[in-house]
Structure formats: structure tokens, C-alpha cells
């Protein structure tokens, strides 16, 4: 049978998908074990028990200075910044994307500005944000917002703009005005796309979060990674990175589920 025609069953797909991950872990273990055989105090590739030993104090013992459970405090701080940034970006891009997509005069007025902002590398704005907003939480959240909003705005605007012209005409023959078309025709159809755009923006949002925390912060997942780097603490860095990956995956799956639940009409005929 040709490879293009081979359909994989769901149970097989899970198995196949696990193979490369397990393989990668095995390769790591093999390398770590061989390094530890040569030097029992190797810090570059820690063994699993080394990672556990490194993480236990962060997970279960309060920090001597701050009295906080470092790992959980880091997670909370990072998720708070990320959540705020994503929330503001989502709301902003929905509103701006909608008016850009539906109203040609607004598109002509604001479209070039959005395009202009979108081509600026957000990290290049970080010094400006730090100068303008200080080194506190605002600057970090602002970096996430500025980083992902223009892309999301352009995506939503393009999607709304590509709604069939027939629909817009039809709505007008049913008595709808600009506002009603925006509210009842464009907005509901933009929502599933908004969730999709948000899922795509999760990756960049994490990048901006970690960058901001690495440069100026005293708490957060990114801060911790960059802090312990000074001591070559791979036994902390690797679990932290894995934790970030897990959080990102959970967010992505949750958003995908939300879209499927809330907008069944946008996900094929099976609802």
C-alpha cells in the first residue's frame, strides 16, 4: 500500500507518537550515564535522581529568605503575567480585528499602522518598555501584549475580511446595519478563529515572558532558569523547561477543547 494511503488508527497513533519521545529520553539517559561513569560529579547531564534531588527543595521546602515555595511561586508569577498578557492581547485583537475586517474606512485608516507595528521586533521595544514603565510587572505584561497582538489583529482582520461577501449582502437584505453585522455575523464567526490565533500565539507569548523575566525580574520560571544557569544547575533547568512545555501543552489542549465545545458549528458537521 502506498504511504499516502496508510491511515493510522488512534491507538496506533498514540504508540507511534510516543516512540520518538521515548527514544530521545533513552539517548539522554545513555549519555548521562556514560558521563557519570567518567565523572560522578558531572553537572551537565544530570541523572533523573539528580533532578529529583535538585527539585525537592524548590518544590517542598520554603525558601529561607522569602519563606515561599520557590517552584510554585515561580509558576504562579509566570502564569499571572502570561494570563494577563494573553487576556489583554486577545480582547484587543478581537475588537480591533473585527472593526478592521468589517469596516473598510477603519481598515484604510488603521491598517497601515497595525502593519507597521507588526514588523517591529518586540524584543527591540523591551528597553523602551523598561524605561517607560519601569522594571515591574507592567513592562513584562506589556511586552507579551505588544509581541503577540499585532499578529493576532492581522489574522482576525484578514479572517473577518474574507467572510463571503454574500453573507454581508444577505445580512443587509435582512435589515442589518453595520453594527448588527459586526455583532451578529462577524463576531460569532471570528471567535473560533480567535481561539485558533491565541493557540498559535502561545509559543511567542512564552518567548516574550521568559525574555522579560530573564532580563529584569526577581521571580518567575524564566528568572529561575537564568539564575541557576550561573551554577550550571542543569538538574533544575531541565525540570523547569519540561514544566514549561507541559503548561504550554495543557493550555493548547484546553483551548482546542474550548473551541470544540463552544463552537461546534465551526468544527465540521459532526455535532
Amino acid at each position: 500500500m502506498r504511504w499516502v494511503n496508510r491511515q493510522i488508527r488512534r491507538s496506533d497513533a498514540v504508540l507511534l507518537g510516543a516512540v520518538p519521545i521515548l527514544l530521545l529520553m533513552l539517548v539522554y539517559l545513555f549519555l548521562a550515564v556514560s558521563r557519570h561513569a567518567a565523572n560522578p560529579f558531572d553537572k551537565i547531564l544530570p541523572l533523573p535522581q539528580g533532578m529529583v534531588a535538585g527539585m525537592v527543595p524548590l518544590l517542598f521546602q520554603p525558601d529561607q529568605l522569602s519563606g515561599q515555595y520557590v517552584f510554585w511561586a515561580d509558576t504562579l508569577a509566570s502564569l499571572e503575567r502570561l494570563g494577563l498578557g494573553l487576556g489583554i492581547a486577545t480582547l484587543t485583537s478581537l475588537v480591533i480585528g473585527l472593526v478592521l475586517g468589517v469596516l473598510p474606512p477603519v481598515r484604510a485608516t488603521i491598517g497601515p499602522l497595525v502593519t507597521g507595528i507588526a514588523v517591529i521586533p518586540p524584543i527591540a521595544l523591551l528597553p523602551i518598555l523598561f524605561i517607560a514603565l519601569g522594571l515591574g510587572e507592567t513592562a513584562k505584561v506589556a511586552l507579551i501584549v505588544i509581541g503577540i497582538t499585532p499578529v493576532m489583529v492581522r489574522d482576525i482582520a484578514a479572517y473577518v475580511g474574507s467572510l463571503p461577501r454574500e453573507q454581508i449582502i444577505k445580512a443587509q437584505t435582512l435589515g442589518a446595519g453595520s453594527w448588527q453585522i459586526m455583532l451578529r455575523v462577524a463576531l460569532p464567526q471570528a471567535l473560533p478563529r480567535l481561539i485558533y490565533a491565541l493557540r498559535l500565539a502561545l509559543g511567542p507569548a512564552w518567548v516574550f515572558l521568559i525574555s522579560a523575566e530573564a532580563i529584569a525580574s526577581d521571580i518567575g520560571l524564566g528568572y529561575r532558569i537564568f539564575l541557576v544557569r550561573r551554577y550550571l544547575s542543569m538538574d533544575v533547568i531541565i525540570p523547569y523547561v519540561a514544566w514549561i512545555a507541559l503548561l504550554a501543552i495543557v493550555m493548547d489542549v484546553a483551548l482546542a477543547q474550548l473551541s470544540r465545545r463552544a463552537f461546534p458549528w465551526a468544527h465540521g458537521a459532526s455535532h
Binding site: 463571503p164 454574500e166 453573507q167 449582502i169 455575523v185 458549528w265
Partner: peptide, 11 residues
């Protein structure tokens, strides 16, 4: 009006 396609709202 009724067009050949896209005359109804999918949502």
C-alpha cells in the same frame, strides 16, 4: 436575495 452559495450563516 438568494445566492448560489453562502446565503446562510454557518454559526
Amino acid at each position: 436575495v438568494v445566492f448560489q452559495r453562502y446565503s446562510v450563516f454557518p454559526h
